[in-house]
């Protein structure tokens, strides 16, 4: 079953074409890596799919809804975690969870048991009344992800979720992503860490607003005759004319 569908999706800012006729499909439960150098248009493409930014042309469907006309319906069934760490620092772990539960309209009686379960799984039970700003960055990011999928969305969009985190924490973070995927949540993740690309079921590589390659990591490595995703990426990125911002 296809949950994300993009057909010649384009975004122009004046004369500048940030996203240039990209087309792809993502299946349910898949972990789809959306790679590209800084400024290649990853974030803009993702924002169009989430309804944060209006497409200049092209079609897109997320969870069966049209991104141009039904963005309100899309918002109810997706989760989103942005580049910036985006929980409220001056709220406790528990208060943050309750806030998002309230925003997504989760019934009151489900919130408490769900919160306890989540905190237990994360090993955060003792920290539930700690202000978020007192947590280490890796913990914050794990919490941020858990909050983004707290309402059991069909798809979760992750925009460079592991920026600035050490490799071991990144690995733990990816375990959470696998868990979510096993529960049937589709994961759409942008990253520029190539070791993370290896963890994805399928990746697309954006160069100058276009998708230049798309396949499973294994196939891409074969195609580009490279032992690692990093090598694949380097070959494609060399063609880029656009300067990173």
């Amino acid at each position: 079953m296809t949950v994300i569908q993009a057909d010649k999706l384009t975004k122009r800012f004046g004369k500048f074409t940030a996203v240039d006729h990209i087309s792809f499909e993502v299946k349910k439960g898949e972990i789809f890596g959306f790679l590209g150098a800084n400024g290649a248009g990853k974030t803009t493409a993702m924002r169009m799919l989430c309804g944060l930014s209006k497409a200049s042309s092209g079609l897109g469907r997320v969870a069966g809804f049209d991104i141009q006309k039904e963005s309100e319906k899309i918002k109810k069934v997706i989760g989103y975690m942005s580049q910036k760490f985006s929980l409220y620092e001056d709220l406790t772990v528990r208060e943050n969870i309750r806030l998002y539960a309230g925003i997504y309209g989760i019934p009151e009686k489900e919130i408490s048991p769900k919160t306890d379960l989540l905190l237990e799984n994360l090993g955060f039970s003792s920290e539930k009344n700690t202000l978020v700003k007192a947590l280490p960055l890796g913990w914050k990011q794990k919490l941020s992800f858990s909050v983004a999928i707290f309402h059991d969305p069909v798809i979760v969009f992750l925009d460079e979720p592991t920026g600035g985190v050490d490799p071991s924490t990144r690995r733990q973070f990816w375990e959470l992503i696998y868990d979510a995927s096993q529960r049937g949540i589709t994961v759409f993740v942008t990253t520029h860490y190539m070791d993370e690309a290896e963890y994805c079921d399928r990746v697309s590589i954006m160069v100058d607003g276009r998708i230049d390659a798309m396949d499973s990591p294994t196939n891409l490595k074969k195609q580009f005759q490279s032992p690692s995703m990093d090598g694949v990426f380097q070959q494609l990125a060399r063609k880029a004319k656009r300067q990173a911002d």
């Binding site: 989430c50 944060l52 989103y80 942005s82 910036k84 985006s86 969009f157």
Partner: peptide, 12 residues
Amino acid sequence: TGTMEILLVSPM
């Protein structure tokens, strides 16, 4: 802080 982005993606 970026929380506005999260709010705008939410159904609020």
